[in-house]
Simulated assay, not measured.
Amino acid sequence: ALNCPVTDLSYDQEHGGGILVKTEDMDLYCENLVNAAGLFSAQLAAKLVKKQPKSQQQQKRNFIPRHYFAKGNYFRLEGQRTPFSHLIYPVPEPGGLGVHATLDLNGHCRFGPDVQWIPVATDNNVVDDECMGDNNPDEIDLNVDPHRADVFYEQVRRYWPGLKDGSLAPDYAGVRPKVHHPDLLRDADGGASLGFADFMVQGPQEHGMAGVVHLIGMESPGLTSCLAVSELVADKLLLQGS
C-alpha cells in the first residue's frame, strides 16, 4: 500500500505458518514474501533475521550485505544546442557508468549521473541491525550541489569538447543502493578491495528462510531487467524445498 511503511517482519506461528508483515496500519499474512524495498531491502531482511532462533541468527545474517548509498547527480544543458541524437556512454567509473548524455522525449539533454558516495561512519565488517550504519535513506539530501558542475564540465568535454562554459544547470539527483563501497569492501582476509560486487537475489536456497526472496542492492536492473528478475524470483520460490 502507498505510504504504508513496514515496521516488522516475522514468521507467524499462530496462524499455521507463513510470514507476518506488520505495518503502521495493518497486519498482513502471506505464504511468500518478495522483499523489493530498494534502499530499505537490507534493513527489512535484517528484521526477519532478528526473529530467527539465536543459534541461527549469525549464519543467516551473513547472507545480508551491508548497504551503501551512492548519490547520482544530473545537470541539464541550457543555452546550447545538443549535438547528440542518441545516448552517449563514456568508459565506466568505479561505482557507476560514468557521466553520460541522455535525451528525454522532448529532445532535451542532461548529463549524469556521477557517483557521490554517502559518507559511512561505521566499520564495514560490523553489520548492525539496520545494515545501514548511520545512513538513513530518508535523510539523504537530494539537492544538486552547483559546485559539482566543475567535474561535469571536465568529464563531458572528454567526448564533447564543444561544451561551453555556463551551459550546465543543476537538474535532479537520485540514490542508488550498493552492496559494495570502493574504499571499504575487503576480502575475507582483510586484503585488497574486491573492486566490484553485483546486486543480489537471495532465495531460500541461499539464506534458508522458507518463502522469502530478498532483492538487495538493485539498481537500474530492477527496472530495465525487471521481467528477467521476476522469472528468477518465481523460480526460487517454486523450487524451494526441491
Rank of each mutant, 00 (worst) to 15 (best):
P119K: 02
S167K: 07
L223H: 04
M132F: 07
L77T: 04
T23W: 00
C131I: 08
L238F: 05
S230A: 10
G16N: 01
S193P: 11
N3I: 04
G98I: 02
P119W: 01
K47A: 03
Q205R: 15
P204H: 03
L184H: 07
D123R: 13
M209W: 03
V115M: 03
Q202D: 14
R186P: 06
R81T: 09
N106P: 10
G222H: 06
A36Q: 03
P137N: 06
G16C: 02
E78P: 11
F40V: 04
S41I: 01
A42S: 12
L238Q: 14
H15Y: 01
M132I: 08
A36P: 01
N106H: 14
P161Q: 05
N143I: 12
V21G: 08
S10E: 07
L48R: 02
D8V: 05
A210K: 14
P137S: 04
N32S: 11
D189S: 13
P65E: 09
M200L: 15
A192H: 10
K236L: 14
P182L: 01
Q202W: 13
M200F: 08
K47M: 06
L97D: 09
L105S: 15
Q116G: 15
V127T: 14
A42E: 07
D198Y: 00
L215F: 01
A228V: 11
A169F: 05
L44E: 04
N136Y: 10
R148T: 15
N143L: 14
Q13F: 14
A234C: 07
L20A: 13
F152W: 06
P170E: 05
H108F: 14
V229L: 12
L168W: 08
Y159S: 03
H147K: 14
K51T: 13
L9G: 11
L2S: 15
G72M: 06
L163T: 05
E139V: 06
P53W: 03
D141H: 08
L239A: 15
P119M: 03
L227N: 12
N124G: 15
R61H: 11
A46D: 09
G217I: 02
H86A: 12
T102V: 09
